[in-house]
Design a protein around this nucleic acid. Structure first.
Lengths: 152, 152
DNA sequence: TTGACTTGGTTGCGAATGCAACTGATACTG
DNA sequence: CAGTATCAGTTGCATTCGCAACCAAGTCAA
């Protein structure tokens, strides 16, 4: 039994989560980076547009909890690379409706498939049942970690 | 039942892990940032030296899986701020043995206590039993995610 | 010993990040 | 309407990151 008054990084939940996130993200990052020179944020924006269809940058921020400047720049780059296009919203001329181009959908399909494969392999390695439980617990954390006192 | 051929970010384990890690790290980050202007890497280096005692930068890299340049810079800053000191190893004059100063130990004690409190509150919120299971699963992922094919 | 190779750690530099300040459009309030 | 507050998104700037190239010390083999 460890001394409960001394801090142990290895038992610190944020640390464990970070380690696990790093470990799993890193190798998949290599995939979209090598294939399309994309950054993590760009990949996320693409994935969200791919899944949910056209939406505004603000919506993406709300869904992903990513800073708006980060999203803004990711959108610019994706547009430059011809993966998405913007259209001013007719309802609100401040907002821009983002949607994937044909090329963007192609890329999404390709990376999406690779992500599915990667995820399957990962779950197989840690055990499917455990992986399923893990999903639930992570969702719970995401929902409750910053529930009060943290707006970001 | 979702279409298994279409990719869904919300079921992508690396994504979930990232979200959870972000959510839990962010608010604690505010603590060490506000109190000592420390960065995450600096905090980790401090925490490892605090827990394991004097060791070399290389060892820290091995334990934490953090890039060596990141560690190198964190060490420099911690030294500038008087939290750790370096001594050339008598066995290998390339290596430097890092150890916390008295001040460093003070800071570690303070932040360590805050981390314990934070962790406790977090676990209470998500449920202690679930938190305990989570630990195990995360360790499993960390151990197996990059087990083969990924050296970093 | 000498010369080729590895290793601990640092540095340079371009890219990514975070935060605050800003622009233009919209919504509230009287 | 006028005046103010709010909101979508961008930009500037200082900090951090990641990778490759680099230095100095150590190892190995002949």
């Amino acid at each position: 039994m460890p001394d409960p008054t001394e801090f142990d990084l290895e038992r610190f939940l944020p640390y464990l989560l970070n380690q696990a996130a790093e470990a799993t993200s890193k190798s998949f990052q290599a995939t979209y980076k090598a294939a399309y020179g994309m950054t993590r944020t760009q990949w996320r924006v693409l994935a969200n547009l791919g899944k949910f269809g056209a939406m505004t940058a603000r919506d993406i921020c709300a869904i992903t909890h990513v800073e708006k400047t980060k999203v803004s720049r990711a959108v610019s780059t994706l547009e430059e690379n011809g993966l998405l296009s913007r259209a001013t919203s007719p309802l609100d001329r401040r907002a821009e409706i983002l949607s994937l181009t044909d090329r963007g959908r192609e890329v999404f399909a390709d990376l999406g498939q690779k992500a599915i494969d990667y995820d399957r392999a990962l779950r197989a390695r840690i055990g499917p049942k455990i992986a399923a439980q893990l999903d639930e617990r992570l969702r719970r954390i995401i929902a409750r970690a910053g529930a009060d006192g943290d707006g970001d």
